[in-house]
Nucleic acid binder design. Structure first.
Lengths: 211, 211
DNA sequence: CGGCGATACTAACAAGCGTTAGTTTCAAAG
DNA sequence: CTTTGAAACTAACGCTTGTTAGTATCGCCG
């Protein structure tokens, strides 16, 4: 049983890596099996089809992201203002996409390989993020904290900005996840028209960071 | 000659559409040929390989985008400030990605199908956009017009924000390219810390646009 | 008219694809 | 010791893939 569970996990691990790097269509069952250390036919002891592997990974990635965002939002005080909510949301989003770039790649680029049914489910899961962020922006605008230019476009622009971190972040790079999150939180605050002049005046300006 | 040129163009048109919609790997030479109205083997009278079609389309899309940006920048007065430069750049970028979503899809998602040589060339072409925008932001920050948080991350965030328009814009939607560009120009100005309070005070605030 | 180049066709190739059937292995349960 | 069931194996199926060779068609130039 232990070896069985670890084989499933090995398939998940290898599939995730290969789908993210080479794409779903360009990855073959034989290549996955070879990397796992078994024969191609043996994969079907664990997954019904190639598409099932992709769906398992897509679903897992989306639920993991959902959990991280929920956890991040739950740390907020009940009376947290819109700015804090936006910060928590953007921080969780950026952190996930930096530290889980393979999962991010699958959710953002390999979903075309899913069946129509699974595709719809994935899109629906992803839409909840847009709704969540949209609520934060709407509330912040209503309370006067934010000055949103256009709700829908702002939501998409912020989300896509966070997602794009997965395309360039490297664990061995010069920027830590904390530093990156801090910058993106500030960028998102600017995008929604949060006035942070008081904040900036409190600390010394140091010019453009060239890194 | 005339029919020959139009066949090449038909292959380009069909390949562009299919690569963008289904992905490079999932698109077969027979499917392209069928849509063009010829046999699969006849494609090789016009392109040496499947990868050559992808490269032709990738190269064409990148050069088209390059042209649009150059044209947009050339309309500026020689003494245009950084804000005008940023506006021209973002406007051209957003407009291209809205009106040419198929080309955008290929450049942003199908490049994995390219050979190593062609891939490097494409990445190199794309890097010029980052350099251009980076220069605008650096100059604007140096002159005090902008208050950039982090140069590299701001460049990537703005570019990715523009690119993402290609994933949701529809010609039959409710937003015109002009309206979208106007919003994204404002968003980019906020991201670089351009102070537009004077501008906003001049026009009436209307709350969040829900559309 | 005769030839020529461009472009289309047909037919096939070798390779690879996802998947399946049937069999073997082997550790745990009875 | 026997039974059982999970999980591996081998070997193949039917199909599709990108690509090529050889041939036919047809408008244009000399």
């Amino acid at each position: 049983m232990m070896s069985g569970a670890s084989t499933v996990d090995a398939i998940r691990r290898v599939g995730l890596e290969m789908f993210a790097r080479d794409g779903y269509e360009a990855t073959t069952m034989r290549a996955i099996a070879s990397e796992v250390g078994i024969q191609a036919g043996s994969l079907y002891n664990h997954f019904a089809s190639k598409e099932e592997i992709l769906w398992d990974l897509t679903r897992g990635a989306l639920m993991q992201l959902t959990s991280r965002i929920r956890e991040s939002m739950e740390t907020l005080a009940v009376d947290a203002d819109a700015r804090d909510q936006l910060s928590a949301f953007v921080d969780a989003h950026v952190r996930f996409h930096a530290l889980n770039s393979d999962q991010a790649s699958i959710v953002n680029r390999q979903m075309a390989g899913l069946s129509a049914t699974h595709y719809r489910q994935a899109v629906s899961l992803r839409a909840t993020f847009e709704t969540q962020l949209g609520d934060i922006l709407r509330n912040g605008d209503a309370s006067g904290e934010f000055h949103v230019i256009d709700l829908r476009m702002s939501v998409i622009a912020i989300l896509q900005m966070c997602i794009s971190v997965s395309t360039w972040y490297r664990a061995d790079g010069k920027l830590s996840p904390d530093e990156i999150c801090a910058v993106y939180v500030q960028l998102s605050q600017r995008m929604v028209g949060f006035d942070q002049r008081a904040l900036m005046a409190s600390g010394p300006r140091k010019g453009v960071s060239q890194r």
